[in-house]
Amino acid sequence: MKSFLRIPSLLLGLLKPKSNKPEIESYGQKDSGLEVEQIQQIMEWLLASLLNAGYVGRSHLIWDLGDQDWKQVLLMGILKDEPVFLYRCGDRPSLAPEHCCWRLMAEYPSMRIYQLEVKEG
């Protein structure tokens, strides 16, 4: 029943116009346990990476403690074709939704940033 209650908010989110400037929506930042300087460094690196890849628009960054339910955020990113990233604060990342996987972004030195990818086929 709770998932049906979220459908209107998902639909409203899809109606928002796409951004023409670089934006990173952040989720779970307060519970991450990281210092402000660490968070700023990670977000700056991610923004620079997105700009270097030629992406301008909204993206999503989840500060994940593991075993958390991020389905609404993940679905929104997938439906709007916006990149979704996860910073692993715990031992392992939360599960990706069905037909998706977390790809480790080895370019970041801590080996804690992942990008959500939809599996082919």
Rank of each mutant, 00 (worst) to 15 (best):
3 S>G: 03
3 S>E: 12
7 I>G: 02
8 P>R: 06
9 S>A: 15
10 L>Q: 12
10 L>R: 15
11 L>G: 02
12 L>N: 12
12 L>E: 15
12 L>C: 09
12 L>G: 14
13 G>C: 02
16 K>P: 00
16 K>I: 00
17 P>G: 04
19 S>C: 10
22 P>R: 09
23 E>Q: 14
23 E>D: 09
24 I>R: 10
27 Y>F: 13
28 G>M: 04
28 G>V: 03
29 Q>K: 14
29 Q>G: 00
30 K>A: 14
30 K>Q: 12
31 D>L: 04
31 D>C: 01
32 S>Y: 03
33 G>V: 00
35 E>H: 15
37 E>Q: 12
38 Q>A: 07
39 I>H: 01
39 I>T: 02
42 I>L: 01
43 M>S: 03
45 W>P: 07
50 L>F: 08
52 N>F: 02
52 N>K: 12
53 A>P: 05
53 A>D: 15
54 G>E: 09
54 G>P: 09
56 V>W: 08
58 R>C: 01
59 S>H: 06
59 S>V: 09
59 S>Y: 05
60 H>E: 07
68 Q>T: 08
70 W>G: 12
71 K>E: 13
73 V>Q: 11
74 L>N: 07
75 L>K: 03
76 M>I: 06
78 I>V: 10
81 D>Q: 15
81 D>V: 05
82 E>G: 10
86 L>E: 05
86 L>F: 07
86 L>P: 03
87 Y>N: 00
88 R>L: 07
90 G>Q: 13
93 P>K: 03
96 A>Y: 10
98 E>H: 10
100 C>R: 01
100 C>V: 04
103 R>A: 09
103 R>I: 11
106 A>D: 15
107 E>M: 14
109 P>R: 11
112 R>G: 01
113 I>S: 01
114 Y>P: 01
114 Y>A: 05
116 L>F: 08
116 L>Q: 08
119 K>Y: 00
120 E>F: 09
